[in-house]
Design a protein around this nucleic acid. Sequence first.
DNA 1: AAAAAAATTTAGACCAACCTAAAAATTGAT
DNA 2: ATCAATTTTTAGGTTGGTCTAAATTTTTTT
Lengths: 220, 220
Amino acid sequence: MQNSFTEENYLKIIHALSGRDGLEVSTNALAESTSTRAASVTDMLRKLAEKGLIHYKKYQGVRLTESGEKVAINVIRKHRLWEVFLVEKLGFGWDEVHDIAEELEHIPSDHLVERLDSFLGHPRFDPHGDPIPDAKGNLTEPDYLILTDVEIGEKVRMMGVLDHAPSFLQHLDRAGITLGCILEIKEINEYDKSASVQIEDKQTLFISLEVSKNLLVQRR
Amino acid sequence: MQNSFTEENYLKIIHALSGRDGLEVSTNALAESTSTRAASVTDMLRKLAEKGLIHYKKYQGVRLTESGEKVAINVIRKHRLWEVFLVEKLGFGWDEVHDIAEELEHIPSDHLVERLDSFLGHPRFDPHGDPIPDAKGNLTEPDYLILTDVEIGEKVRMMGVLDHAPSFLQHLDRAGITLGCILEIKEINEYDKSASVQIEDKQTLFISLEVSKNLLVQRR
DNA sequence: AAAAAAATTTAGACCAACCTAAAAATTGAT
DNA sequence: ATCAATTTTTAGGTTGGTCTAAATTTTTTT
Ligand SMILES: [Mn+2]
Ligand SMILES: [Mn+2]
Ligand SMILES: [Mn+2]
Ligand SMILES: [Mn+2]
């Protein structure tokens, strides 16, 4: 029995919401993320439980089973590989690829995914810095810092984003903040908690707290 | 209002069945091609007519409108471009790509198609020799001959296939008949109407009538 | 021109994925 | 511990795309 487009999306979202410790996900949270109503989510949860893809007890929230986890991670693998393709091969900006990948991730051919992966040179990360699961379904989240946790004077490398919204990514483009670039925190401005950040040893600019909260970085 | 996956498939199939002169297509023919029942086809035709995509009068068969033709040709463009991608970039065989392209053809981004087209170098033909419509929707079917219409002694170039079934394409692979290769009809065998054909000035082999009927070629 | 055969449409139903409104269970506050 | 607020589920309905069976129209044969 094949999983539908919609089922795959639910599984992917349950995976995202349950975080790295596989916490229980609530019906309302799913309704929010899927842009549907709680009643519709309940219907779908019954079906996914029926198929053995989630652990579900009424009123108790939901977790992925082994097999649900496998499906979810495979969808994530496809999503991120296609994003790499769109950026690296077709020249899209990192702010343009999410919605297209949201469709491509449901194309159902293992053969296709493996060939795409090798065509792309087995990339480890997608254009937003998110790790790409391997063919066996291993997904290791690197533990990056959030820019707000970095001390004044430290130099860090920009490794990823928490917010994937086009408007956020475009804002980073305008600021010259790209994946891999070096950032140095010069000071934290008392007034609005913004950070003065020097980018690639060149210009220094104000980064709002809102932005800092969404930047993943690594000490070096 | 967007067209669904299913609607696009109907339009594409109506296009294919109505041929180059835009003949009327019957309900039963569509049921056959869509692997559904005539009753289901009738339902869908009412909907497509509602949306202005087809000309449909009860019991009278169906033709595409201008706007239906545009949609159909765009789906065909996407199908064939993705097939080129799968063969040229991912290394699939020409016998493996149809089903995957059948899914990819419904990914709805004009931006994506145009970038894919230029990534592929604006190919004119797909891996089966079928012409790829341009971005404006112009589709010109080259007028090839069928191998059965070629006289003994003539040399022709192999330009395409009528049957796209994997088993047929694999049979051609085993025979060494590839797109662009030169074929010379040595004789027609009385017994089974098979043709003795010399391939690329090398080995000569028997080509059954069944196969000959499905090979498109060009005089040279 | 009638009857028979074939093609097509209508009627009535099903399933997936959604909805609203109402009922039930859980959580949290006093 | 009770009551109120919140969350979740159930009940009943809609839409898209499909089905079977029956009715209707068209085509073919006699
Ligand atoms: Mn994405
Ligand atoms: Mn991404
Ligand atoms: Mn298709
Ligand atoms: Mn093709």
